[in-house]
């Protein structure tokens, strides 16, 4: 079983950015970021393309350096953080395959490396955790299959199993719903729900929430590199139907739902160009 051991630091933030700013190639991408992820919550980071939502979680994971401010993971400054097994990361990816064939079990087993030492063979606990993670995403019968032969939705489940193999306390998913059909999104929502019951903290980046909407406790809407909204989810974020037009809102047309998600505080609803 994937069981998370209780930690004494229950009230401390799981991940935290204080006064963070990020530049990529000299251009400011994020600024004035103050975010604290509380233990046990499901946080969705929303925003349009280029709003900095992926960069925000990548900064939390230490994949992107900050130019100011501080990042803390489990209340430890990021540069001193070594308990990487407490974090499971599902990068934004269209495929789990690479240039050489690899089986589902091999890809998932690389998620266990944060708990293993170089040159030593996997222990019994490592092998069990890999099998549990594969079972958690419903791929038990496919453990020996090559990942390249799986469908897109199944490959994404492989990447989620890989993140679960270290039995993390914090699971971070970058665009898990991008390019995945609705039934796979529903399966993903079910998997995440069981993790929430085990006390796993979840941070997910999404363009729109779809079936994941019911899980989310808190949303963070990014807009132009800043946090535009931080609070409980509002209907407009989960409204994923592009053909649904509200009467009495003349500016809101079929293709306007994305700008609405990007800027929920923009009361013009996209009727006017921003100066």
């Amino acid at each position: 079983m994937l069981v998370n051991s209780p930690h004494a630091d229950a009230d401390l933030p799981v991940a935290e950015i204080r006064d963070g700013a990020v530049e990529l190639g000299g251009r400011p991408i994020l600024r004035g970021i103050d975010v604290s992820v509380r233990r046990g919550e499901v946080l969705a980071v929303l925003g349009a393309n280029g709003s900095g939502k992926s960069t925000l979680v990548r900064t939390m994971m230490g994949l992107v350096p900050t130019v100011r401010g501080q990042v803390r993971l489990f209340d430890v400054p990021r540069q001193d953080f070594h308990d990487w097994h407490r974090i499971g990361f599902v990068p934004q990816r269209v495929t789990a395959a690479s240039g050489v064939p690899a089986s589902v079990r091999e890809v998932v087993a690389s998620g266990r490396l944060s708990r293993r030492r170089p040159f030593l063979p996997p222990r019994r606990a490592d092998r069990d955790a890999v099998e549990d993670a594969i079972a958690a995403v419903g791929l038990t019968g496919k453990a020996r299959d090559g990942v390249a032969t799986l469908s897109g939705g199944q490959q994404q489940r492989v990447l989620i199993a890989r993140a679960l193999a270290s039995v993390p306390d914090l699971l971070v998913l970058d665009e898990p719903t991008a390019g995945v059909d609705v039934s796979s999104q529903q399966a993903l929502a079910d998997t995440l729900r069981t993790l929430v019951l085990r006390g796993v903290t979840i941070v997910l980046v999404a363009h729109e929430l779809g079936p994941l909407g019911g899980l989310v406790d808190r949303t963070l809407v990014m807009r132009d590199g800043r946090v535009a909204y931080d609070g409980p989810p509002i209907d407009v974020f989960t409204d994923a139907d592009p053909f649904h037009v509200h009467h009495g809102e003349p500016g809101r047309t079929a293709d306007a739902h994305t700008p609405a998600v990007a800027s929920p505080l923009d009361l013009t609803h996209g009727r006017e160009e921003q100066p």
Binding site: F89, P91, S98, A109, S110, L113, A163
Partner: peptide
């Protein structure tokens, strides 16, 4: 296992502490 993980997915490997 380590070389495979790094070649397979560099960002994941980094978050796994490699």
């Amino acid at each position: 296992p380590q070389l495979f993980a790094v070649a397979q997915d560099q960002e994941f490997a980094q978050v796994a502490g490699l």
